[in-house]
Amino acid sequence: MSKWTTADIPDQTGRRFVVTGANSGLGAETAKALANAGATVTMACRNLNKAQPVATEIGPNATVAQLDLADLASVRAFAENFDGADVLINNAGVMAVPMRRTADGFEMQMGTNHLGHFALTALLLPTITDRVVTLSSGMHQIGRIDLDDLNWEKRKYRRWRAYGDSKMANLMFGKELAERLAAAGSSATSMIAHPGYAATELQGRSETVEDVFMKFGNKIFAQSAAGGALPTLYAATSPDAANGMFYGPTELFGSRGAPGVSGYRKRADDTAFRGELWALSEQLTKTEFAI
């Protein structure tokens, strides 16, 4: 596995994938690699104008569908028109943005990165035949989720802490989903992945001077978006990817390189806390999992 590349993706002919946020960056590279391996890919995107050129480049194996994870009405509309897939890849996300709220009043990062994907997965899971892959980040390490103020209504907003919280929530969700699927005797599995330090459009949205440094870092230090997509592709396609595991790059302290099992903050293994986050997420999104 240490030298795993897109050349190792098994033939995906006849398999269907949904990739959220596939209009650029990691999502676009993931969609391209899957289609190259024979898969049919639904690119679930908020910005259709940006998504369509990517789909055109991919060819007939790619279709575009409207999905705004910051609006639960959009999530439900997507689910109503969904007729099943083998794999759901929860890829879309925002990072370190100024204080904003989703259409449903959630803090934008938690609302998009976690709650939107939580609701989407709940609604689609009965028609997912193989696996769910949820994108986290090495920045989950700074996450300190406050269940009493998940949406930053009582505290002074800290954009990087909010991002870390949302990425810890992604990791906890993926692990909790894995355990619940196993306990239910489901054949479906749940994996989590992170891209290391990859150059994407995710950086440079803070609207602060930090954007200058992040764009510089993308040019000098980061690996490509295609490299960053490898852990996702491994989790989504490899027969060796295991339920509940967290995959990421294996070189330079997990920032780049071929995919492998990734370390993580052990807070993510707190099953009681994960259960509370799950229950709160169901309450906020008004969705329930059929497992």
Results as ranks from 00 to 15, higher is better:
237 T>G: 07
218 N>V: 02
143 G>H: 07
235 A>R: 04
272 A>D: 13
127 T>Y: 01
17 F>D: 05
259 P>E: 02
221 F>V: 07
215 K>N: 14
4 W>Q: 04
128 I>F: 08
221 F>R: 00
50 K>G: 15
256 R>K: 14
201 E>H: 05
266 K>S: 11
256 R>S: 05
146 D>S: 13
280 L>V: 13
243 N>T: 09
290 A>K: 15
123 L>H: 08
28 A>K: 11
27 G>R: 06
70 A>N: 11
218 N>P: 08
140 H>Q: 14
246 F>A: 08
18 V>F: 12
51 A>M: 06
94 V>A: 04
241 A>I: 03
256 R>D: 02
134 T>G: 03
65 A>S: 15
73 A>T: 15
32 K>P: 00
100 R>S: 13
68 D>C: 09
38 G>C: 10
64 V>A: 11
285 T>C: 13
243 N>H: 08
239 P>I: 05
270 D>H: 05
45 C>S: 10
15 R>Y: 09
135 L>I: 15
233 L>S: 08
220 I>K: 12
286 K>E: 15
12 Q>A: 09
221 F>I: 10
125 L>P: 00
181 L>F: 07
19 V>H: 06
182 A>D: 14
102 T>W: 07
20 T>F: 03
1 M>L: 12
155 R>I: 00
70 A>C: 11
112 T>S: 10
282 E>N: 07
29 E>Q: 12
42 T>I: 15
67 L>H: 06
165 D>L: 01
34 L>V: 05
244 G>A: 08
223 Q>A: 02
82 F>N: 09
163 Y>H: 03
95 M>F: 09
42 T>P: 00
125 L>T: 13
102 T>A: 10
258 A>E: 08
144 R>C: 02
161 R>E: 15
275 G>P: 01
198 A>F: 01
128 I>N: 10
123 L>R: 11
94 V>G: 06
67 L>V: 11
132 V>C: 06
159 R>I: 07
242 A>M: 14
164 G>D: 05
140 H>I: 08
286 K>G: 11
287 T>V: 15
257 G>Y: 00
95 M>L: 12
131 R>P: 02
101 R>F: 14
49 N>V: 13
74 S>I: 11
94 V>S: 04
31 A>C: 09
55 A>R: 06
47 N>F: 03
177 L>P: 10
233 L>G: 07
184 A>P: 02
51 A>S: 10
152 W>H: 12
20 T>H: 02
185 G>Q: 11
30 T>I: 08
92 A>G: 05
137 S>Y: 04
197 Y>W: 14
84 G>L: 05
47 N>P: 02
151 N>T: 12
283 Q>P: 00
4 W>F: 09
253 F>N: 14
250 T>K: 08
285 T>E: 05
53 P>W: 05
128 I>M: 09
29 E>R: 04
90 N>R: 03
204 G>D: 03
73 A>M: 06
